[in-house]
């Protein structure tokens, strides 16, 4: 059988409109997840990086003495690990689009650019949450065993993590799309990413800290911090979404 024998010109029937957009979104997301499951590149490199960070923490805290309660800074340490591991993951998620010029093929298809943004960002949220879910138990095991008890409500932690992950993925997807086209990808991403992440991290650390420590008025601190996280996520997602079309086409 040859190409000529196959009915080439009879154009295959096509979907259009919102159902097509949804199908495209799912396709990109599924493709990223399938590729990750196959190579395990992102999650392993991020996970190992997180473990290495834990070792560094041990060194950093080695002189703190027995009176020091790691719970006091647990939220900060966790988010620090997430920031560095997420940069690693964000870069990877766009490098494989770029490697074989696949991004060009993607842009040539009748897909609205925002769909690419949301699908890539959603994929990054998924990977970040996986890494967070793996890191937290390890962190608790290594550093929080002596701590008397956990302070706040347990459900607060995943909420704070998800809020932070959405912001990281939203801005990160935009920035990684740019940095993947630069000389010195990782460095450029870090220089752009960290200052933009600053307000989100501050709010996320505050929320996580309230959840870990508990204490007077922690519920109020948690919710007011979460409100700031949500505000940041909303504003930055809209901005990143609006700018993405320009960035991806350049």
């Amino acid at each position: 059988m040859t190409v000529a024998d196959t009915p080439t010109p009879p154009a295959p029937a096509r979907q259009t409109g919102a159902s097509l957009s949804w199908r495209q979104f799912k396709a990109i997301l599924r493709k990223d997840i399938v590729m990750e499951l196959r190579t395990k590149e992102m999650v392993t490199s991020m996970g190992i990086y997180a473990l290495l960070t834990m070792v560094i923490y041990q060194v950093a805290l080695s002189q703190a003495g027995t009176a020091f309660d790691p719970r006091d800074i647990a939220a900060g340490l966790l988010w620090l690990a997430f920031v560095f591991t997420s940069m690693l993951g964000l870069n990877r998620s766009l490098v494989h689009e770029k490697d074989q010029g696949c991004l060009e093929a993607l842009l040539l298809s009748p897909v609205d650019r925002p769909i690419i943004f949301f699908a890539k960002a959603a994929g990054n949220v998924v990977f970040l949450l996986i890494v967070q879910a793996l890191t937290i138990p390890v962190f608790a095991f290594l550093f929080l065993q002596r701590a008397d008890q956990y302070g706040g409500d347990l459900w607060m932690i995943p909420l704070a993590l998800a809020g932070g992950a959405i912001g990281i993925a939203g801005v990160g997807t935009l920035l990684a799309t740019m940095s993947v086209n630069t000389k010195g990808k990782d460095f450029v991403l870090a220089v752009l990413f960290v200052p933009l992440m600053y307000p989100l991290l501050l709010a996320a650390v505050s929320a996580t800290s309230a959840a870990v420590l508990g204490g007077d008025g922690y519920v109020q601190q948690f919710w007011s911090s979460m409100a700031l996280v949500a505000a940041y996520d909303a504003i930055m997602l809209v901005a990143a979404f609006a700018l993405y079309e320009f960035v991806i086409g350049a």
């Binding site: 801005v171 920035l175 933009l196 990143a240 700018l243 320009f246 960035v247």
Partner: peptide, 14 residues
Amino acid sequence: ATYAAAFGIIAFIN
């Protein structure tokens, strides 16, 4: 120019 513009805008919002 495009990337710098995008980053300039998002930095200003930030």
